[in-house]
Every structure is written in C-alpha cells, then in structure tokens.
Nucleic acid binder design. Structure first.
Lengths: 131, 131
DNA sequence: CTTGACCCTCCAGCTACTGGAAGCCCCATA
DNA sequence: TATGGGGCTTCCAGTAGCTGGAGGGTCAAG
C-alpha cells in the first residue's frame, strides 16, 4: 500500500507518516522503485499513533505505548502509569488556561473597546501584581 | 542596571531578556564594557512582557500590545480585539483539553493497573472510533 | 594576583511537524 | 510513442519561545 492510501486510512498526512518513519515509529519495507510498501500492521500502528496523539500523548509516550501494545505480556500497570501521568499534566494545563481565561474575560468585559485610549487591559499588564 | 538585576525585578531569566532584545522587543543601550545598561523604561517594558506572556499572549501579540501601550493615542478597541481573539483561542484549547481529559479519566479509571495484560486504554487506542 | 560571580556572543537543540524545491515513476490519453 | 499530470522520493529550512553550553572578557574583594 502506498503512502497516499495509508494517509487516507490512518488520517495522518503523508509528511507525518514519513516523519514517523524517520524517528523510528514505523519501518515499512520498500518496493523496487523505492516507494514505501506499507503492510496492514504498519497501517494499524499508524492509526494507533494517530489516536494516541489525538489524546495528547507526546511522541515519547506514543513510542512507549506502542511497545506495550505490541508486548502481549505487558502489565496494564505500565500503561496506566503513562496515562495517569499524562492526565495529571492535562489537568494542570487546563487549570493554567482557566486562570488565564478568568483574568482575560474580566478584562475584556471591562474594556470599552471604543476610540478612547483608556484601557483596563493595558492597565492590568502595566501594573505589578499586588503583593 | 545590569541584566541580573533586571532579571530579578522583572521575573524573566537573563536568557529570555537577551532573546527579547534579539527579536527587537527591547533595545537597551550598552556600557563601555559591552554590558547592557537597562533603563527604568526597559525594565517596565520587560515586566509588561512578562505579564502578557503569563496571560498566554504570543510574542507577536505582545509586540502589538507593547506598541499600543506606548501609543498614548491608541484606541482601546484595538487592544480589546487582540485580547478577545486570544480569549477565544484559550477557550478552544480548554475545550480540547477537557475532551481529552474526559476520555482519559474514564480509561484510567477502568484500567486495573495490575500485572495482567488486559488494558482498556490500549483497547481504546487500537480501536477505530465508531462511525 | 587570584578567585568567583557576573557578563558577553554564538551555536545547537528542544516538540512535532510542515512547506517547498528538485527530481523519479507510473499510467492514461493523443 | 510522446506527453501530461499526479504521486512518490529525498533533503533543507522554518515554525514558537526559549534554554543549555562552550569559550571568553570584566569586575570587585581578599
């Protein structure tokens, strides 16, 4: 199967698939003409990777998850540890963003947004946080 | 004022301050020995930048906000547009992350996390989404 | 005079791709 | 058989926003 069709099936752009080969996540054989000849197992791997990335796992996490996926004697413990750590980081990021959103939405609400120069947004950015 | 003290006062690492000079956000003069000689206005700018970055504005946003801040004839409208756009993007990102978190927390909850290989997390990653 | 804390520049690397140039390869049609 | 168009290849460079490190100058204290 050529890269274009694999891109269709896996939902990943061809460029990304080549990149994943570069960094050793997949290793499709080549046809006589030099084209990558993807096997079903490669397509499965790539789809797995696409779904893992869509859940926000880093490439290194994906590499580890892939290894665990392929290891039929793995302990679900090891998978759970990765996922839980990732979940913790996501929650931290959500909290950060929510704090930004809360601050910003107040500022946007309070800014007249007209032709006058007075602006609570700039005021906030110019003022050191209260000690 | 030397870079170390500016770093203390602004909360930005010296490396970051040099980088901001590189990309033209500040432009401190130099002493005879080549050291950067920051003025109060530079420190104010850097603090402004630190607070803007902490609210998640991109460097380009910061550049524009800085220009507006220094332009005493600005229209608050222009500031508000930048902030509102940014707020929208933050909200989109929060929504993305919340979707990931929701999926992941179910998976983590349902995974035994013991020595057995069965793992709903890997199952989910291996299974195409229902059509 | 030496020590140690600063400061300088320049180069490289991080994440996870993405765009583009230059050049084969394959198939269909005129 | 020539040609045109699409798909494939590699390699290089760039994105955002820093950060680490090498190699070296500067300054104040002891």
């Amino acid at each position: 199967m050529n890269i274009g069709e694999v891109a269709q099936q896996s939902g990943l752009p061809p460029k990304t698939i080549r990149y994943y080969e570069d960094i050793g996540l997949v290793n499709p054989p080549r046809d006589a003409n030099g084209y990558r000849a993807f096997r079903d197992s490669d397509v499965h791997k790539l789809s797995f990777l696409g779904r893992s990335r869509a859940l926000g796992f880093t490439i290194e996490d994906c590499r580890n998850l892939l290894a665990l996926w392929e290891d039929k004697t793995r302990a679900s413990h090891d998978v759970r540890v990765i996922a839980k750590e990732h979940l913790t980081q996501i929650e931290a990021k959500i909290a950060d963003l929510q704090a930004m959103r809360d601050t910003l939405s107040v500022l946007v609400r309070d800014c007249a947004g007209d032709q006058r120069p007075d602006c609570p947004i700039l005021q906030k950015l110019e003022t050191p946080p209260a000690p």
